[in-house]
Amino acid sequence: MNIFDEIQHRLASKTRIRALFKDVHVEDIERIISRLEGILAEKKDAVAADEAKRQAKQENIDEVRRLLAERGLSLDDLDPTEEAAPKKRRNVQKFTFQYETNSGDTVTWHGSTTGRLPKDFQTYLDRTGKKRLDCVIED
């Protein structure tokens, strides 16, 4: 239990508050209460300011929606990126590779010059010291 939870637990019950402050002077309790009232006032002011900001923002949103409706527009009409720049697709060129396995079999494999390789092909490249493009065969 963190300290905030502990304080909240102690202050949540009148009986626990009495036990907590049983040996404290009246002046000290009054000072604590006045400080807590000051904190409460600050918190209420902050909440009211946040609510005013939220209300002003909502009014602006409602005004924009009203203007869009008057002109027959929607939010989708405001997004020019959809029409102006179509999504780019990754263009990976594929090749047919030929290599020999450890048992001496010749294997052809269709793939790209990037990414993972079949285990036998990787073993072949490590064994011979060749590059992938050295194993490309013409179709």
Rank of each mutant, 00 (worst) to 15 (best):
A46P: 02
A46N: 10
A46E: 14
V47G: 01
V47Q: 08
V47F: 04
V47K: 08
A48I: 08
A49C: 03
D50K: 15
D50F: 09
E51Y: 08
E51M: 11
E51A: 14
E51T: 13
A52Y: 04
R54M: 06
R54F: 04
R54E: 12
Q55F: 09
Q55G: 02
Q55E: 14
A56N: 10
A56Y: 04
K57P: 02
K57S: 12
K57D: 11
K57N: 13
Q58P: 03
Q58L: 15
Q58C: 09
Q58N: 12
Q58R: 15
N60V: 06
N60K: 14
I61A: 11
I61G: 04
D62Y: 07
D62I: 03
D62V: 05
D62E: 11
D62L: 06
D62G: 06
E63C: 04
V64N: 03
V64D: 04
V64A: 13
R65L: 12
R66C: 04
L67K: 03
L67Y: 00
L67C: 02
L68M: 13
L68P: 01
A69S: 14
A69D: 10
E70A: 00
E70R: 04
R71P: 00
R71L: 01
L73A: 06
L73G: 00
L73I: 02
S74T: 15
L75V: 14
L75A: 12
L75G: 06
L75N: 11
D76K: 09
D77V: 00
D77L: 02
D77T: 06
D77N: 07
L78P: 00
L78W: 00
L78M: 02
D79P: 00
D79C: 08
P80F: 07
P80N: 09
P80M: 08
P80W: 04
T81P: 01
T81K: 10
T81E: 14
T81W: 07
E82I: 15
E82Y: 11
E82L: 15
E82A: 15
E83F: 10
A84Y: 08
A84C: 07
A84K: 11
A84N: 12
A85F: 15
A85K: 12
A85T: 14
A85I: 13
P86R: 10
P86Y: 06
P86G: 05
P86C: 07
P86L: 07
K87N: 09
K87M: 08
K87P: 13
K87I: 11
K87Y: 10
K87F: 09
K88R: 13
K88N: 07
K88P: 07
R90P: 06
R90W: 02
N91A: 05
V92W: 02
Q93A: 10
Q93I: 01
Q93E: 10
Q93K: 14
K94I: 12
F95W: 11
T96Y: 06
T96I: 14
F97K: 01
F97Y: 09
F97I: 03
Q98V: 05
Q98L: 08
Q98F: 01
